[in-house]
Simulated scan of single mutants.
Amino acid sequence: MAFMGGAATARPQTTVTDPVRVMVVDDSVVVRGLIGRWIDEDPALAVVASHRNGKLAVDDIVRSNPDVVVLDVEMPEMDGITALPLMLKAKPGLVVVMASTLTRRNAEISLKCLSLGAADYVPKPESNSGVTTSAGFRTEVVQKVKTLGQRAQMRGGRGHVSHPEPSPRQAPPVSPAPTARPIASPAPRATTSGAGPSLRPYSSMAPKVLLIGSSTGGPQALTKLFSEIGPAIVNVPVLVTQHMPATFTSILAEHITKAAGRRAAEGVHGEPLMPGRIYVAPGGRHMVVGKQGMETCVLLNDLPPVNFCKPAVDPLFESAASIFGASILACVLTGMGHDGAAGAVRIANGGGSVIAQDEESSVVWGMPGAVAQAGAAAEILPLDQIGSKITRILGGRR
């Protein structure tokens, strides 16, 4: 049963076999009711509390003991950005998923919340009727709550979901999502000693481009990574695909600019690739690379979602593989699903190099885990080692 008003009666402490315990916080009774019903319809999830503002939620965190909070950004009395740090202080390890409509202000607040400790966000339709009819929003809320909640249950809030799952982000709201493409068969590869994924050798050629793909947990990871590699990317263009809707990606580019100390912006159709520039795939469009005359350019398209995502990582990786070959350095960071794995195999089969973020440092080890399991990675590294590795490679060292 979904709760429409105050807190539910507190339940016993969670074990790894219990449903994920969820608190829903939104000033709209309609939204609270819908999200609560969707969650309770999944046997792996259970609503333990529902509140109309942040203050009531903060006061109830200890008693209701949720694993995950779905937290609205805009609410009376106490909004989401004010409630977030108080919730995390009351229950360290709590997973908070921000929900906000697609305005620039709310996108900025949502990204700020990620830097304050929120695990992820979901873009919310602007009207209650939109919430009611959006299959995409429903799918994304349930999938993220389940995946991140099960992660929280593992290892006392420090576990990671390592199995690749199809990511629901930006799935078409009405028509069925396209079937994810199979991952290409990898070519023979070098093997590691002992257990674990097989690794490819790094390319012996100097990179002419750096490609990065990410999803859940990506904004935080990208900020950290670019703060470290900013000085090193002077001689190569950098292309980033982060699963995000429109509005969010332009703000993400601004954050990357500050972190890297170099200009980052959404890619523009037809603009040439320039060394030292950072191109971010705009929300709602795929970004690829192609030739226009003698120049290699950014190309945008409005083709259907790939791996349930738009923008998707695979189109970028695959298009770059056909142009740059063994002169590619790519990195797949934290994220749900397996987007990027097929493209990583293409890059590796062409002689390029792919770095995958490791499981321990990933918010969700879906995308990088799929790359590792496909045998496409040259190395699997924690986030705090990826920046220095990229810097060494771009500097001509290994």
Rank of each mutant, 00 (worst) to 15 (best):
15 T>F: 10
15 T>Q: 07
15 T>V: 13
16 V>F: 07
20 V>H: 05
21 R>Y: 14
22 V>L: 09
23 M>V: 01
24 V>I: 01
24 V>K: 14
24 V>N: 14
30 V>I: 15
32 R>M: 06
32 R>W: 00
32 R>P: 02
32 R>G: 01
33 G>H: 10
33 G>S: 08
37 R>A: 07
37 R>S: 15
37 R>Q: 14
38 W>D: 07
38 W>A: 06
39 I>L: 10
41 E>L: 15
44 A>G: 11
46 A>M: 15
47 V>S: 03
48 V>D: 01
48 V>M: 03
49 A>K: 09
50 S>K: 10
51 H>V: 00
51 H>Y: 10
52 R>Q: 11
53 N>F: 02
54 G>C: 01
55 K>Q: 14
55 K>A: 13
58 V>E: 02
58 V>I: 00
58 V>R: 02
59 D>P: 05
60 D>L: 00
61 I>A: 04
61 I>H: 10
61 I>Q: 03
62 V>F: 11
62 V>R: 11
63 R>V: 01
64 S>Y: 00
65 N>I: 13
68 V>S: 02
68 V>C: 06
69 V>T: 06
70 V>N: 09
71 L>W: 08
71 L>S: 06
72 D>P: 02
72 D>S: 07
74 E>T: 09
74 E>A: 12
74 E>I: 15
76 P>W: 15
77 E>P: 01
77 E>M: 10
79 D>F: 14
81 I>E: 04
81 I>F: 14
84 L>C: 06
85 P>L: 12
85 P>F: 15
86 L>R: 08
86 L>M: 14
86 L>G: 09
88 L>Y: 08
89 K>Y: 06
89 K>G: 15
91 K>M: 04
91 K>A: 13
93 G>W: 01
94 L>K: 09
95 V>C: 10
95 V>K: 07
97 V>R: 04
97 V>C: 08
98 M>K: 05
99 A>F: 03
99 A>Y: 11
99 A>N: 09
99 A>W: 04
100 S>V: 08
101 T>D: 01
101 T>W: 01
101 T>I: 05
101 T>E: 05
101 T>P: 05
